[in-house]
């Protein structure tokens, strides 16, 4: 049912006893959703590890064509953004909502930087003709391994899926930032911010696995 009531300035849906009950339930739902996200990427990791085992040289060739410096900068950017995200939640808890807005804005900005670097990397690859699968068509020279397209299949699939998550995350952070500016949150009620925060940390965590797998191993 959609009817809700206000308890101490917090909107509580009628099927919950109180704000804390609702908060705990929402949090559990979020964590379960995160589990499914991790499992989904987990399936990709398993595929990657299996084929890395079969074609180690081909994967090494693929990894060489990536610029680890770009990936490393992106890793730093995301870790920093996780920090500012956590800061945002902290500021709401201590009633400094203005500062929280700034922290969230910085987080979104980090997301933009990440996507910008990703964009530069992608266009560079496209420029060289490094497309996934059978579309791989190098402009200069030929690949050393005939099935190099598989590496880029994994590369685009994993980073692409992750990139989509980053963009969704940015949208969600934007949403809670606007809500925060409208004054929807207070030290008792900030569940959406915390939920989006958990999502953002998981997206960050997945990147921390992706970076060494794609850029460094090989």
């Amino acid at each position: 049912m959609s009817t809700s009531r206000l308890v101490n300035g917090v909107e509580v849906a009628s099927h919950y006893r109180d704000a804390n009950h609702q908060y705990q339930s929402n949090k559990e739902g979020l964590w379960l959703f995160m589990v499914t996200e991790i499992l989904m990427f987990g399936g990709l990791f398993v595929g990657y590890i299996i084929f890395h085992g079969i074609y180690p040289e081909m994967f090494a060739e693929g990894a060489r064509s990536l610029d680890w410096k770009m990936g490393f900068i992106n890793t730093l950017v995301l870790i920093f953004s996780s920090f500012t995200m956590a800061l945002g939640i902290y500021f709401i808890q201590v009633k400094q909502n203005k500062k929280a807005t700034i922290a969230l804005a910085v987080t979104i900005a980090c997301g933009f930087v990440f996507m910008l670097i990703k964009y530069l990397e992608y266009t560079h690859k496209f420029h060289l003709g490094l497309y996934p699968g059978r579309m791989l068509h190098m402009h200069e020279g030929a690949p050393e391994h005939a099935n190099l397209g598989m590496y880029f299949g994994f590369y685009y699939c994993m980073t692409g899926l992750h990139g989509i998550h980053v963009m969704i995350g940015m949208g969600l952070i934007g949403w809670v930032m606007i809500k925060n500016m409208r004054g929807d949150f207070n030290e008792k009620y900030f569940t959406p911010v915390e939920g989006v925060g958990i999502f953002w940390h998981i997206v960050d965590l997945i990147w921390i696995f992706l970076f060494p797998l794609l850029y460094l191993v090989g």
Partner: peptide, 10 residues
């Protein structure tokens, strides 16, 4: 779906 669209060879 990737396999069919791009022929990634997995």
């Amino acid at each position: 779906a990737m396999e069919r669209t791009f022929g990634v060879g997995i």
